[in-house]
Design a protein around this nucleic acid. Sequence first.
DNA 1: CGCACCTTTGAATGAGATCAAAGATGGTGG
DNA 2: CCACCATCTTTGATCTCATTCAAAGGTGCG
Lengths: 243, 243
Amino acid sequence: MAGSCLAERLSHYVHLSAGEQEALDRLEEQERSFRRGAVIIRENEVLRELFIVRSGWLHSSLVLGNGSRQIMRFHFKGDVLGLPLLAFTDSPETVTAVTDVVLCPFPRERVATLIADHPRLAALLIAFAIASRVSLADRLASIGRTSARARVSSLLCEIYGALKILGLAENRVVQLPLTQEEIGDATGLTAVHVNRMMRSLVEDGLIERQGGQLRILDEARLCADANFTDRSALETSWMPPPR
Amino acid sequence: MAGSCLAERLSHYVHLSAGEQEALDRLEEQERSFRRGAVIIRENEVLRELFIVRSGWLHSSLVLGNGSRQIMRFHFKGDVLGLPLLAFTDSPETVTAVTDVVLCPFPRERVATLIADHPRLAALLIAFAIASRVSLADRLASIGRTSARARVSSLLCEIYGALKILGLAENRVVQLPLTQEEIGDATGLTAVHVNRMMRSLVEDGLIERQGGQLRILDEARLCADANFTDRSALETSWMPPPR
DNA sequence: CGCACCTTTGAATGAGATCAAAGATGGTGG
DNA sequence: CCACCATCTTTGATCTCATTCAAAGGTGCG
């Protein structure tokens, strides 16, 4: 087992102290594997623990009374799952493994000690929660106010950006293990229409596809058409000193 | 000037210690007034401070390249504005006063001391950030996957719920100082279509309107039709002890 | 090799947008 | 206190983008 995935993620933004590093490592002492399709957290069920993603893709979604599903976001290596446990007893969303995944579960009380012992990690947690809210807001604007084609483009930009940071994009190519139905559920479209939009992006030379592969041919134009804003830079200068 | 609005909000969830109370009071030492329509925070501008809402309504929004606008959420008494300052240097959103408002500005560094001195307040901040993300997620599902009528209903439920908690709903009546264009920008619809949906809600006996007043006649059905979930209860049992 | 599941394509339908214009409302200044 | 103008609401007609329905290819796993 390598170092903590969460620590690795955080160290993109700050230089972690030994104490912080150690506290984070302890969150990932356990490991649990799930098969693709497995439901990790179920909507309305009592939440028991949080997870850090070690490998694989997941998504969190919400199912409405009419049977349709909205995917809120995708989760990658270093993401924390089950954060709603810090605000609610029952899960407001379902978390599903898109690929086979390895997760590190840890109890909620660990967060309390973490916050009390390491104020800067508390600040980072706050910053991440806010950043994730902002990125949901971007998605909201995309779905509420742009065309189907722009919505699909925007999602591709978002996913490509996340994977690039994780070093999972080589030569403008990423693995895209999503069905068109899942892309539809994330963008508020039907699978059929997602198909048409993807083909139109291919025809216009913006992307290429083969198998589960996606190649981004013209990232600049794709992002511009989609009104996509990169939010990966985080502000940390205000945070309290490390302990 | 009465006690801190933020402290009042938080004390719905926990019993604040004297130290916590005092620290929160200090955030609201200053006061600044704005007229209806004033832009408090402008998208892409450098953020300078945070604000606590003392009175009035505001909304935060995003303007897209095509000129259309998406309103992300509305802000009421006790809300904190400018939280993105804790994660970004430039504001990702515009905050506009819907009515005349009174705000209490405070510098970002205060948050750092607050977190370091009062871990439970840090935990509350985290919980609030997460709750606000979840409520955005609910909105996302509403806009992505439900009919125009359900979207409008959902927004009304959300606003009515927030005002009820603040004691601003009397006899099922609330002030609704929004234009139909603003409601459209919040729900991803055109003003014209919002009008039709509102009238249809009136015809079906779910709501009544006169002037800037809104009366909720059948909250249960309105929420059910809209697939609205109340998320006002917050989980605090895991939080570190107060200082 | 066969069976799920996914992608692709076409045609018909429909929800919401757009365009246009007539009432209501309310704030402001004379 | 009233008249006027800007803004907001309401209504109708038409149009369009995305959905729905249907069915034919692909793909990969067991």
